[in-house]
């Protein structure tokens, strides 16, 4: 083994590079691309087109349960999708019931509606009349099931403590009265919504998910448990492109592209090093290099 490491040379260095090089390169590349985006072209996936088509089925006055099942950290990833989707909701004049699945959610409405101010002003979209924020809903199974079964037994006031009586939410008895669930998720209560709203009442559900959870949601999409999926920041950027409203998503796509390419380069370097090193030593199977 010692002899082998002596023989490694440049190949060994390539095969066993310090992971801190990956951190440094990724940090520098992403930071530079975010500060100085050059606006490279992007491809639009069929998945995002299908998401847009699903939102287009909504009519004016439809009731949508918008569940912000994300922490603030997750919001930073989902922001393009959240903004683009809500722009569509406002333009269509759907009624929104907004809930958060995390205590940090209390900081989200001021931030999100500040970004949407142009749309809410243009379409005269007002709190209490067009949208009601019911606030924090405990994201566990029992709480979601309870809310789905008897909405008004669990929600009597909005997030500011004002009664929801007299708003469009009077029409809601149980979750089956919603026309759509629009979920933005880091994984908090999404499965519970599928179990207790989609399966129980057959309400269509669209999901905007963080990247790491997308493979799991793809299975839900394929099985028809959710009707459309918007994947991470990239999906949000594509939706921004489709509705012709550039925002934070499209701005970050250069960083996305270069981040992925840099990772590919590290994989290639590692494999060249692995091949060269183990070939030279003639003991590839005995190295156990990770």
């Amino acid at each position: 083994m010692n002899r082998m490491s002596d023989e490694g040379g440049i190949y060994k260095k390539m095969a066993t590079y310090d992971k801190r090089w990956v951190y440094l390169a990724l940090f520098a590349i992403v930071l530079y691309s975010l500060i100085r985006p050059i606006g490279m072209p992007i491809g639009i996936s069929a998945q995002t087109k299908a998401y847009k088509t699903e939102l287009d089925t909504l009519q004016e006055g439809d009731l949508v349960f918008s569940t912000w099942n994300m922490e603030f950290s997750g919001y930073m990833e989902l922001k393009p999708g959240v903004l683009a989707t809500h722009k569509i909701f406002i333009e269509k004049g759907v009624k929104l019931c907004i809930a958060f699945g995390h205590f940090e959610g209390v900081a989200l409405p001021p931030e999100i509606f500040k970004q949407l101010k142009k749309w809410t002003d243009d379409y005269d979209y007002t709190e209490g009349e067009d949208y009601v924020i019911i606030g924090y809903v405990f994201p566990n199974e029992a709480a979601v099931a309870a809310l789905a079964q008897d909405f008004h037994a669990n929600v009597r006031v909005d997030w500011k403590g004002q009664s929801i009586e007299g708003t469009f939410l009077d029409e809601i008895q149980n979750a089956g009265d919603f026309d759509m669930i629009s979920d933005y998720t880091t994984g908090l209560a999404t499965t519970n919504l599928i179990n207790h709203v989609v399966l129980q009442y057959g309400v269509p559900m669209v999901v905007n998910s963080i990247g790491v959870s997308v493979p799991g949601h793809l299975a839900n999409l394929d099985a028809g448990l959710i009707t459309a999926l918007l994947a991470s920041t990239r999906g949000g950027a594509e939706l921004e492109f489709l509705i012709n409203s550039p925002g934070p998503g499209l701005k970050s796509m250069d960083a996305f592209t270069f981040g992925h390419y840099s990772l590919i380069i590290f994989i290639i370097i590692g494999n060249i090093g692995h091949y060269g090193w183990t070939r030279r030593s003639g003991a590839r199977e005995r190295t156990g290099i990770r």
Partner: peptide, 8 residues
């Protein structure tokens, strides 16, 4: 406990 988590 979920697919992508397992892979990582």
């Amino acid at each position: 406990c979920y697919t992508s988590n397992m892979a990582a």
